[in-house]
Nucleic acid binder design. Structure first.
Length: 421
RNA sequence: GGAGGGGUGGCAGAGUCUGGUUUAUUGCGCGGCACUCGAAAUGCCGUGUCCCCUUCGGGACCGUGGGUUCAAAUCCCACCCCCUCCGCCA
């Protein structure tokens, strides 16, 4: 959500933003409704003022006839007012709906483009492995080394179900524990947030209403969050923070639930795309400064890069183009790991900043040095998801005999330097 | 699942029974100033949010939405949320 005053003063900018994002949004319609809303509001205000003057008089008048005259007048006014108020109410509803549709303004550095094929590679890091044997894919490697059981996963859970077991489970724990220690160096406070979250908070992050189909729900009408971003943003909802406590750096570990509605044909084998997985997520809140947001966005991204580098996994960094950038975001980077069996990079992490777009909805403010309350800025980015990280590790670290070398950084957490064979 | 008590500004907490002088008492916090070498303490001043308006000013808001009334934080109804106790349970 953007500030209506900002929108009014920067109509061209908002229009260009919608165009760049390929969002169908009619700024003129919003301006029309906004004008109407303000006009009605003024009229209603004036009528209320007139109406509110009468009770004061009534309480002072003792004469019964004069009193009745005033009461009659008030009743007439009331009917008139009621009509206007109804109009104002429906206009306000229209206004609110349109306001929810206003896209955030993408940063200048966001490249133009229609969809993900127009995302731009910014850099690559690391050495892609060259195998002088028939390299296997992760499904094969995990099966033969007993890291996962897909058959029973399917039996018990259903489509996209899986069990991680043995060294596969061990490796997962190793990643979680290693990531926790690694990120604590960057001043993060660790969290284990709830994954069952009240529906209202999904609107704040922008996951509702657009992604309703992709969310699981409980019989009590809560939803299962697909990312810790939601409970962690909701954490400070309706609060006023101390400026001296900013920035907040949170590292949240949580299960993530995604129905993957609409992607039934994609990645149907293995653990690349699953309904239930674990993820460590970075979330930051900072003062309302574009420069600070940019700075911390780079920081979040670099944190994950350093982590991937420490695992010696080859990756690329992409900047998300306008057409692929979500409505709520100012700018986004994706980090993608090299997947040998597919001979391409696949998404492992995504980092974004939002200015006050989310915090306006969550009502998270801070008091600045002049005592004025302002909305904080929010940012988030993946630290590391499992089991997707496992996919890259087993494929990139596979050996000719079908075994898997454990990345050096994980060995002390895993208790072994080699899995299988 | 059962019973009861509550939701008031950044926080705490009055006001609700008995509707109008509540543009919400008070304290804390916060901002400014004074005192001070500086700070603490103290004193003085200011300080809820949002909307409309160039200014002056006006209006809305006491969980949310309805209703009663000339007039609602206050009375009535529905919903949401929180707390306590009992039950069940890892």
């Amino acid at each position: 959500m953007l500030d209506i005053e900002f929108i009014r003063d920067n109509q061209e900018l908002v229009k260009r933003a919608a165009d760049k994002k390929g969002v169908d949004f009619d700024i003129n319609q919003l301006m029309e409704v906004d004008d109407k809303r303000r006009k009605l509001k003024t009229e209603v205000d004036n009528m209320r003022q007139r109406q509110n003057e009468i009770p004061d008089k009534i309480s002072q008048v003792n004469d019964q006839i004069k009193r009745n005259e005033l009461i009659d007048k008030a009743q007439d006014l009331k009917e008139e007012l009621q009509e206007k108020e109804d109009k104002l109410k429906s206009t306000k509803e229209d206004w609110q709906r349109l306001m929810m549709d206003v896209p955030n303004i993408p940063d200048m550095s966001v490249p133009a483009g229609e969809d993900e094929s127009d995302n731009k590679q910014l850099k690559t890091w690391g050495q892609k492995p060259h195998f002088d044997f028939d390299a296997k894919d992760h499904v094969d490697l995990m099966k033969t080394n007993n890291l996962a059981d897909f058959k029973r996963g399917q039996k018990v859970h259903g489509f996209r179900g899986y069990y991680l077991k043995g060294a596969g489970a061990q490796l997962s724990w190793a990643i979680w524990n290693y990531a926790r220690d690694f990120f604590s160096e960057f001043d993060f406070q660790p969290f284990l947030p709830p994954a069952v979250v009240r529906k209202q908070y999904f609107f704040g992050t922008g996951h509702l209403p657009s992604e309703a189909e992709d969310l699981y729900k409980t019989q009590d009408d809560e939803l299962l969050s697909g990312t810790a971003e939601i409970p962690m943003m909701a954490y400070h909802a309706d609060e006023v923070l101390e400026q001296s406590d900013l920035p907040k750096r949170y590292l949240a570990f949580s299960p993530c639930y995604r129905r993957e509605a609409g992607s039934h044909g994609k990645d149907t084998k293995g653990v690349f795309r699953v309904h239930e997985f674990y993820k460590l997520e970075q979330l930051m809140l900072c003062e309302a400064s574009h420069e600070r947001s940019v700075e911390l966005h780079e920081e979040i991204t670099e944190n994950t890069e350093k982590f991937l580098q420490s695992l010696e996994l080859p990756y690329e960094q992409e900047i998300i183009c306008g057409g692929d950038l979500m409505k709520s975001k100012v700018k986004s980077y994706d980090l993608k790991l090299w997947i040998p069996s597919e001979k391409r990079y696949r998404e492992i992490a995504s980092s974004s900043y939002y200015h006050d777009y989310q915090t306006r909805r969550f009502n998270i403010k801070y008091q600045d040095s002049e005592g004025k309350k302002r909305y904080v800025h929010s940012l988030n980015g993946t630290a590391i998801p499992t089991p997707r990280a496992l996919v890259a590790i087993v494929e990139n670290y596979q050996n000719a005999d079908g075994s898997i070398t454990v990345p050096e950084a994980l060995r002390s957490y895993c208790g072994t330097d080699k899995i299988g064979a």
